[in-house]
Design a protein around this nucleic acid. Structure first.
Length: 159
DNA sequence: GCCAACGTTGGC
DNA sequence: GCCAACGTTGGC
């Protein structure tokens, strides 16, 4: 089991948006970066934990937890010319871009903003704090995951 | 709105 | 294959 941090602009797609979908589940689509693509296609597995991060907004923060419920499969939005993230190089045979499905678990009682993260020994190492880091999906260590749960008094994120 | 950092593109 | 130009991200 692995852990990931996924970034989303709340004005575009927020944790509430995820929660309100049927089953609280959605495709994580539109990723057009090869490093992130490789993670989506090869590394991210069903059951992995996801820290949901709100970026590019008044209060950037880790705001909730999700879990992976379906692993890497082709991103159909790359194949549809009407889509914003359409990629003419992609085809059914060679999809190029991938998505995973994630399911909402909970909001954090104490969302962790960037100052909060900087003050913790494990969390201050997170990629999301590094200057210029634009990866929309990035790995999180088990220690970091457990620290987020512990700060929030969460024993079992699925409850 | 500013601007630094980064990835991608494209001319050569 | 180099590298300048450009577009995008994202904190502030």
């Amino acid at each position: 089991m692995k852990y990931w941090l996924m970034k989303s602009e709340p004005s575009c797609f927020s944790l509430d948006d995820l929660k309100n979908l049927p089953q609280g589940t959605d495709h994580w689509d539109g990723v057009r970066n090869y490093q992130a693509r490789n993670l989506l296609r090869d590394e991210i597995k069903v059951g992995d934990g996801v820290l949901f991060y709100h970026s590019n907004c008044p209060e950037p923060a880790i705001v909730g937890l999700a879990q992976v419920v379906r692993e890497g499969y082709p991103d159909h939005t790359a194949l549809d010319p009407r889509e914003k993230h359409f990629d003419p190089r992609a085809s059914d045979d060679r999809p190029i871009w991938y998505v995973v499905d994630i399911q909402y678990l909970c909001h954090l009682p104490h969302p962790l903003n960037r100052d909060d993260l900087r003050q913790h020994p494990f969390l201050s190492e997170m990629g999301v704090l590094r200057k210029g880091n634009r990866l929309s999906v990035q790995p999180v260590t088990e220690a970091q995951w457990l620290e987020v749960l512990s700060i929030n008094g969460i024993v079992d994120p699925e409850k």
